[in-house]
Simulated assay, not measured.
Amino acid sequence: MQQSMSSNSGANKPSHKPPSWWAYRKKQIKSSKHSYFLMMPYSLLFILFTILPVVMSLILSFTYFNMLEAPRFIGWQNYTRLFLEDDIFLIAVKNTLLFAAITGPLSYIACFIFAWIINELNPKMRAILTLVFYAPSISGNIYFIWQMIFSGDRYGIANGLLIKLGVLLEPIQWLKNEDYILIIIILVQLWLSLGTGFLAFIAGLQTVDRTLYEAGAVDGIKNRWQELWYITLPSMKPQLMFGAVIQLTTSFAVADVSINLAGSPSVNYAAETIVTHLIDFGTIRFEMGYASAIATVLFCIMVGTNLIVQKFLRRVGE
């Protein structure tokens, strides 16, 4: 009898339901309201100048918009035209993917190697070499140097040197010959690649705890390569992620080098990239709907590539 009464009383007790997701989130926001208040200025700027333009570009990519008339919805016509009718866009995609496949990994590895070597020097020499390597990426109009090197007459540095050595008999129009344009642009971009990612690697190497190397020696790490793989790289994963995003974005968004050296458009579109194609339709022809479709495709390629690279970098040190 007592057991039945106790069981009935237990059944009559109110059950405590777990709080809903919204209630839990509301409580968390209330407890951290000062942090959210401090984040508000950046969040507003991020929404206004990053998220909103991306959403607007996505919407405009389904319209015909020439900046003189109101946007007119046309469905998938821009994308159909892009992939089935625009042969120049396909050339631009091929050039961009080739460019990114070469300059992306090479510039990323070069940034880390130079940062790793410079980090081993004394502070004064480290500061000087960091400035020397970083300077080309922040210089103003540095393309005239390469225009002098690859000038198409005998006074060009490359032509003059090769003629003097007997390699050439006549000067080569380096920047007007489609066999050389893309190679030269890749070379110049690699020269410019030691930028923000390079500084991030320098900063990351400075934050590695030196006691980890001593602990690693006790645990059986025998050489610098094992230190690099099992201690250095895992300790600076945030900087590795940041550097990967920066270098890949730079390699996919190349335009200035191509325009300044090869012109716009380049000879037979040999140096055409997705961004130069986007600039052509967006700022010259003012076909903003079509330009938005190009931007959306480029955005999807960048996001997909970055996700793959980040998945690979998470395995570093395993």
Rank of each mutant, 00 (worst) to 15 (best):
I279D: 06
G152C: 11
G197S: 06
L162M: 09
L205G: 00
F286Y: 11
L90W: 08
F112G: 00
L121S: 13
V188F: 09
E318I: 06
F299G: 05
L161N: 03
F242D: 03
T276K: 04
F65M: 01
S137I: 12
Y180P: 01
A23Y: 15
S43H: 02
K13T: 10
D219T: 07
I279P: 02
S43G: 05
L84A: 07
M288V: 07
K176G: 06
L307Q: 08
R285T: 13
A92E: 04
G140C: 01
L44A: 06
N268S: 12
L60V: 10
Q28N: 07
M40C: 15
I149T: 07
W191V: 10
Q247V: 07
L45S: 12
I186T: 14
I186Y: 13
M241P: 00
M236Q: 14
L106N: 00
H34T: 07
N66V: 12
F65K: 00
S6N: 12
R126A: 01
V257Q: 11
V54G: 09
M39K: 00
Q147R: 07
S292M: 08
G152A: 13
W21S: 11
F46A: 13
D153C: 04
G75E: 05
L90V: 14
I47T: 09
G289N: 06
V254T: 12
T296F: 12
K164Q: 14
H34L: 11
M125T: 15
M56A: 15
I185A: 11
A295Y: 01
P234D: 06
L45T: 12
L175E: 01
N141Y: 12
F112C: 00
F99I: 09
G75K: 01
F37I: 11
W146S: 02
A115Y: 00
T96L: 04
I279Q: 08
V309T: 11
P123C: 00
T63Y: 15
T196I: 13
S20R: 03
K176I: 02
L48A: 07
W229F: 06
H34F: 11
V309N: 05
L199S: 00
L131F: 03
G304N: 08
L205R: 03
L98A: 09
I88S: 14
G216T: 07
M241W: 08
D153F: 03
Y269N: 12
E272M: 14
I47Y: 02
P14K: 04
A135L: 10
I308Q: 08
E120Q: 14
A215L: 09
H34N: 09
S251W: 06
T232I: 05
